[in-house]
Every structure is written in structure tokens, then in C-alpha cells.
Design a binder for these strands. Sequence first.
DNA 1: AGATTGTTGTTATA
DNA 2: TATAACAACAATCT
Length: 565
Amino acid sequence: MEGNASQRERCHQSSQRSSSPERLPANPRDLKKTPRMPHRTIHLFRKELRLHDNPTLLAALESSEVVYPIYILDRKFMTSVMNIGALRWHFLLQSLENLQKNLLQLDSCLLVIQGEYGAVLRDHVKKWNITQVSLDAEVEPFYKEMEANIRSLGEELGFEVLSLIGHSLYDAKRILDLNGGTPPLTYKRFLHILSLLGDPEAPVRNLAAEDFQRCRPPDLCLAECYRVPLPVDLKIPTECLSPWKGGETEGLQRLEQHLMNQGWVASFTKPRTIPNSLLPSTTGLSPYFSLGCLSVRSFFYRLSNIYAQSKHHSLPPVSLQGQLLWREFFYTVAAATPNFTKMSGNPICLQINWYEDAERLHKWKTAQTGFPWIDAIMTQLRQEGWIHHLARHAAACFLTRGDLWISWEEGMKVFEEMLLDADYSINAGNWMWLSASAFFHQYTRIFCPVRFGKRTDPEGQYIRKYLPILKNFPSKYIYEPWTASEEEQKEAGCIIGQDYPFPMVNHKEVSDHNLQLMKQVREEQYRTAQLTRDDADDPMEMKIKRDHSEENVKKGKVARTTEQT
DNA sequence: AGATTGTTGTTATA
DNA sequence: TATAACAACAATCT
């Protein structure tokens, strides 16, 4: 985990600069790279909404005589494909606003163009006589497809495409190659592969006015035409209770604030953080990493520096750096797994006949399960867009294998809509984890929706905050108010069944039942795997066959796989 | 082939 | 507050 000397030095420089207003001159080595024919470039922001450690934008500036920094806002895509809810819209617009402000300070600007990306690029490449489009490389299928389409457009219209990785610590391809082409399915194995790769690439220097002065900025009146829209322009509800504010500046502030507390940083142990504290017990930086308002590489090296200065520090998987590596773990597996966000056709995912029950799903989503701990979590999620990791576990276990036996895909979609830090790979990965569909297999460990929260918040302060209707119950009833007598309910000003629902299930009964179901599924699929084992040489292939035969079983067809091989 | 191990469960016991 | 028993899986390690 230790950086080599030069990496650490570079990182140290960049971190100093981030907290100091004066900028050092550009690295002379970088200036030498200026090509003979400078480009006219569109820099397309997708994620990576930041000016520190932005390798693609830096490379664009170094190779161009003019750079148009643009963000293409495609409302239809955002709503239908990305499934982003109101709070995420706010966070995105704030992040764009902040990017705009920071670019203006460096004598550039951000042009927010509404429309479908293909059409927008086609128009503006011609209008501005563009010879290069630069964009951050991303692992999600949609973003990969977008890049491929932009490359074809480039061949058609005659522009070059520049794309560098800045959203993850490593290039997932290198990890996969070292693991023989398949993704490592355990964190331990993943760490082993990383140890072969060494430290991630160091962050690049922060962008400064000089970087922009070397190329002409876009005409500033363009910035007037392509302003960042307001929520009201996009017909997004304007009221917003979320304490999270989007943008690089806000993200850096939060980051610096946490890094000041070196002892806390060095000893950070994730499982010991408290899911129901009224202020986040973790860094709360995830929304900023998700949009790329913050750089994971910068954070990684800042942590390395603190670890180097500390007598003792925690280690992955529980350390802060370990958290960044979990993110990386899911990025890596997602990059190599087809249908990663689905059960069907997903070779690493256990195939389960989940119940389809829209009414129960709706109760879970809208905080009406009747379990205060679960409902408080879902309320915080809806109001603020962020909940603690363990709270996510409790809510996810309840929806899937613990109580309701509803597909993790449904829960994933709800989180995708409401979580400010929603991320394709991490969200799907964690839902598979919690539902014991992949990665995690100790399915007998079921969270109790009454007792789990009590451990760290016996008075139920968290519940009282997010479910004020329950706030006058004595602590002994706060996690299970239905056990209070009629008299006590009147006293508390909340009649269960009227003012707050009865629990929607008997946890003991349904969790016992679900555990048996899970056991059954695993036994069946183990048998199927045995049957197909003769056909398969490597485990991945075997799994794919197992999935197919499961699907056939579900449809009532005979499990008939390729006997001829 | 058999043993080991796993970021964050629950309950009972000292 | 810490530890063990509980019942138990599958990827990886040896």
C-alpha cells in the first residue's frame, strides 16, 4: 500500500496545492508534449466533474489551441436509463454550477447543452470545427457504448477521440488479465492481484489558470446561451431537504475536514461505525466520488501520507483505503460480468424465484413496513439521499432474503433513484451481496429489524428524528411500538394501525421460512451443477450452464444442456 | 481432496 | 464487554 518515492512526492505537491491559493508553474515535462498541430477540442464531461486530478482534461488542454468544456444534459436518458430522482438532480445541477464557477475563475467556462449526445456532438463538431473530442473513460455498459459511438462518429466526421481513466484507481483490464481473464470473486483474492500491480497511478496536478491560458477559451457569450439550468427549468421539485450539496468545492471541503483528524483517519474501522448516528459516522464522501467531484486517486494518496505518519493504522478491508478498494473490487467484477445489474443471464448471481409483490415493495419503498428501524432508514434515504452502509444492509436484507423475499433488482432500482452516491457497479454488487446472491454466502445471518438498530441507538434517537410520529414512545417500545398497550399508545399520541402501521410481517416466522427457501435453492442448484459438471471444464462455464438450466426449470422445461460436448 | 476463511448476525453465557 | 455456539456456504488456498 506504500507509494514509491516519486509518486508520493507528486501526490504531496498536488495535495498542498489544493489547499493553497497560489499555483506552481506547469511541469516543464508536460509542456514538451505539445503537438505540432494543436487540436480544436470538445472536452465532454460525463463524470469527473472536477478540476483536480482530471487526466483527460489536462491532456486535452495540453494538446489543443482551443478547448470547449461541455456537459450534455439528456433529460430523457437521465430519467429513463439512469433512473435519477429529484435529489440526484439537485446534486448534479449543483455540481455543474460549481464546475462552471470554478472554470470561470480560470478564464474558461462550462457549456451545458441539452439534447441527445449524438445529435449534440454532430452539431457542434461542425459548428466549432472540432478535431478532437476528449472524455473520461468509464466502465458502465452505457458509457462504454457511448464512447464507442463517439469513436465511430469521429471516423465519420474526422475528429480524434482522447479518453483516459480517472474514475477508478486501476484499469480493470489489467486486474482481469492478471487473474487469468476472470474477475476475482473474493476481496482477498482481489487484494492479492493488486499487490502484484503495486500502487495505483498517482494523481495528475491540479489545473490552474496557466493550463487554460495556453488555449483560447470558448467565446464567453456562448456561456450565456448554455447556462446550467435551474431545477425549475427541468420541472424538478424545488424543495430539497438534503443536507448534501453537490460540487468539487464542497467535496474538497468535506475531504479536508475529515483528513484533519489524522487519528480518526488512521484508525477508521468501517464495521465499527454507527449506522444510526444523527450525523454521518463515516466520511460521507461517496456522493462526491460517485459523480467524480472528488478523485479516488487523490484520496488514496492523501490516506497513504497519513498512514505513513501514523504509528498504527487500520488495514483493508475495514480501513478507509480499504473502502476505496471495495469500490474498485465491484468496478472490476462489474466490468467483466455480463448482465451485472440483473439476476437473469448473470453468471455470478444465484438464480432465485423471488416473489413479485408490488404492494409490499411499495410499503418498503415508502417507509410503511411497520418496523420503525427500517422505516426510519427509508425516510432518511428519501429525504436526504444518503444512509449509512449498515442501514443499507438492514433495509436490503429486509426486502430480500430476510423478510419480504422480493428481488434485489427492485431494491437496487429504488436505491439508484434516491441515493446521491448511486453507482452502477457498487449498487448492484452490494445488492447481490446482501441478498446472498453473490460474494456473500452465509445466508443464515439475517438482520433482525428490531434488535439490530438497538445495539448502537438504544434510545431510538434516529427513529424519533425520521419518524416523528413515534417520538413520544418510551425507549422500550420505540423499536416495536405495537407491543405497547392501548393506554401507552394513547399516551404517546400514536395509535398503531391508525397513525403508524402494524408490522407488515412476523419477522421470526418469515425469516425462518425464507432461510429454508434459501437452503432449498442452494441444494437444487448444487444438484444441477453436479449434473452439468461433466460438461464443464472451468467453473465460470459451469456456472453459466447452471443458470441456463435453472431458467429452464423455472419455465417448466426439461433442464437439457449441451450433451454433445 | 481437504482445510481455511469470510468488512459489519443472533443468542446465550460469563 | 467479550467470547462461544449456532448452522452453514463457496471461493480460494494448501
